[in-house]
Amino acid sequence: MSLSKSAAAPAAARPTSKIASRRQRWGYVYVAPFAAVFTVFLVLPLGYALWMSLHNKGIATAGRSVFVGADNYVKAFTDPVFLEGLWRVLRFVLVMVPVQIVVALVAALLLDTLATRLSRATRLLIFVPYAIPAVIGALMWGFLYSPRFGPAQDVFGLLGLTAPNFLSSANIFGSLVNIVTWQWVGYYMIIIYAALRSIDPSVYEAAVLDGADGRQIALRIKVPMISSSMVMIVVFALIGTLQFFTEPQVLRSSAQGAIPSDYTPNMYAFATAFNYSQFNYASTLAFALGFLVFVGSYVFLFLTRKQSGLK
């Protein structure tokens, strides 16, 4: 290990003797098991997906893999089904991410100012859905939405209204937004809440002396101070939403006809692989989606580097 290399690392200003530099090699021992898994189950699948996306295999090629260059990508980005799916998850991002963030932020800000037993219980109750598997969550809401099982008709009947069909093509978008919001707001709320708790309360005292009210303190002081947590949550929500799969897949059989098997890009890739055994094209779709998610979150982190503190 060269001295210049170790000096480039942060906090490496300590004198480095020969024994000390040999000791640094223990790092390899600690990192090796993870590096092996990282290579086999991340680098290798990614590389293999890329390779498969550049080849075709089938009856037309006599069962051999034939290099086809960018053909599959040209096909994917002119495939109306894939493009429609992309556009759909983009709309989910535009609606679902802000809804989740706003609900989580409001809940966390309220919980931060109240220290009552009710607020402690509420904090726990909002978080519980995080512990529910997405499959079970979607299944449960599928029952609640169902005109046959659900309480919707009873509840709307009280108000003299007729319940809408939550599982119709027209309403399924909102119904899915609701499921994901229910599932994830608690997790985001806990992260925001913990960030709020870590703010030194003396920061507020000056603002109170200047006559600021709760809302001003919340919006002008608290929110800017937790911006790095907010950025992190948005990235999580963004990545999760773009790979939307479980909830629509589970709701598919309850919402007869409202959710096609290619509703989202991930569902399309899954169906292409496992219903039609087109693994080369499925890999192309998966790789293209993964690439777009990666670029999307990278661009977002770049644009918000000031708020997140990542430079």
Binding site: V235, I239, Q243, A286, G290
Partner: peptide, 21 residues
């Protein structure tokens, strides 16, 4: 740096190639 980048790789994108592997 690789690790940080991989946090942004959607895990579902790996499912189909992992299946083949």
């Amino acid at each position: 740096a690789l690790l940080l980048g991989s946090v942004m790789v959607p895990m579902t994108a790996l499912v189909i190639p992992t299946f083949v592997l």
